[in-house]
């Protein structure tokens, strides 16, 4: 949980917005390596199940990737034999409500950043099965590097994380 938004730094907000839009474009356009390069070396990618308040060291999650597992996920997509993405999902997502946030209080289950942000999203996924809509909220711990912002931690809480879900093999 995050508290009130700190005094607004418009330049930083602009930089963060551009970062999350770029991330969204890499995901939609299957630019896997470009997406992977947005992570820090200690990055953690978490998609909780059953609401956003679980402890992923004690409860199942949809994804709880450390940096090595993020790399494995990308390598698996690159094989061309990741059947749940062969052919890949056709995707476009809207990202909005981008906000700078104060550092979270309590356990986050991921590494710290120096910039914190949140955004809402709606993904339109088209596959042979049909169209699936994925809505949720992303929370980021970002780090400022010489190459710009990088993700140290991304937590994606789906609106329907506590219900039966179709296969989610694209990058959310």
């Amino acid at each position: 949980m995050h508290g009130a938004t700190p005094a607004l730094d418009l330049d930083l907000l602009r930089e963060v917005e551009q970062f999350v839009y770029r991330e969204a474009r890499y995901q939609d356009e299957l630019q896997y390596d470009a997406w992977e390069s947005l992570w820090t070396d200690d990055g953690v990618y978490w998609v909780p199940a059953n609401g956003g308040d679980t402890d992923p060291t004690k409860q199942v999650s949809i994804m709880f990737d450390n940096r090595a597992r993020i790399a494995t996920r990308i390598k698996q997509l690159h094989t061309g034999k990741r059947h749940s993405q062969t052919p890949p999902s056709q995707l476009r997502r809207l990202v909005s409500n981008v906000e700078l946030l104060p550092p979270p209080e309590g356990a986050t289950f991921g590494p710290a950043g120096d910039v914190y942000a949140g955004a809402n999203f709606l993904v339109y996924e088209s596959r042979e099965r049909g169209v699936t809509l994925w809505a949720g909220r992303s929370e980021y711990a970002l780090r400022t590097t010489d190459d710009g912002l990088r993700m140290a931690f991304k937590k994606v809480t789906l609106v329907d994380s506590d219900r039966p879900l179709y296969t989610l093999a694209f990058l959310i």
């Binding site: 199942v60 296969t167 093999a169």
Partner: peptide, 20 residues
Amino acid sequence: LQQTIGSVGPAGFLLADDSE
């Protein structure tokens, strides 16, 4: 638990492909 999270469920390295 961590091996389970990696392997199964909607985004699992194994079960996403079985479900496909």
